[in-house]
């Protein structure tokens, strides 16, 4: 099926990717946050059911059932849209660590995107923060990358296995530093 090939043939290619650049890490926020959000929105789908349980007799007696069903279907469309809006924002909010740089793609809403980039060679220090019961149990947290410029830092928010992320970035930064040293 040639039409659907785009589903299986997509790799971690992104806008502005250099030809020889390799993607080492592709990170989203931990699933815990988005799962909570989706469950909360999905629970809204039972509101019409509750309304029917309370006012069902009045609805049936006044022959309003088809109108009620239409309203329910429209409400489900709204819930469906809100769930996928949340999933879209979650999916489009990501961090890419390549063997040359770190890219932070932040999706703030429709048609509102911020992309920042950091060279691995400018990394000075990395701080990992796991704060709270759930983040500690599920192992997700913040990775703060400090650059040579004192006021400039880069934060990976609620990423899974932050310690491993830090190790990978440190290793890549060391490699980059050695490569830069050899060039000089």
């Amino acid at each position: 099926m040639k039409f659907f090939d785009f589903i299986s043939q997509t790799s971690y290619s992104f806008e502005g990717k250099k030809g020889d650049e390799n993607v080492e890490l592709f990170l989203h926020r931990h699933w815990f946050g988005i799962t909570n959000k989706v469950i909360f929105i999905a629970l809204g789908a039972i509101i019409p059911l509750v309304v029917f349980l309370i006012f069902g007799k009045i609805i049936v007696d006044n022959n309003l059932l088809p109108y009620f069903m239409l309203a329910w279907a429209s409400f489900l469309m709204l819930i469906w849209f809100l769930i996928f809006y949340s999933l879209t924002m979650y999916t489009l909010d990501y961090w890419i660590v390549t063997d040359e740089r770190i890219i932070d793609n932040k999706q703030n809403g429709f048609f509102d995107r911020t992309i920042s980039e950091l060279d691995l060679s400018s990394i000075q220090d990395i701080k990992v923060t796991l704060s709270g019961l759930v983040p500690t149990f599920l192992n997700f947290g913040y990775v703060e990358v400090q650059t040579a410029a004192t006021d400039k830092h880069f934060t990976f928010e609620e990423v899974p296995r932050p310690q491993d992320v830090k190790d990978v970035i440190m290793e890549l930064a060391d490699k980059e530093e050695r490569r830069e040293g050899l060039k000089r």
Partner: peptide, 13 residues
């Protein structure tokens, strides 16, 4: 948004 800006297979699915 999903098709144009998504990276990898997940957004397409």
């Amino acid at each position: 948004h999903l098709i144009r800006f998504g990276v990898g297979m997940q957004p397409k699915k």
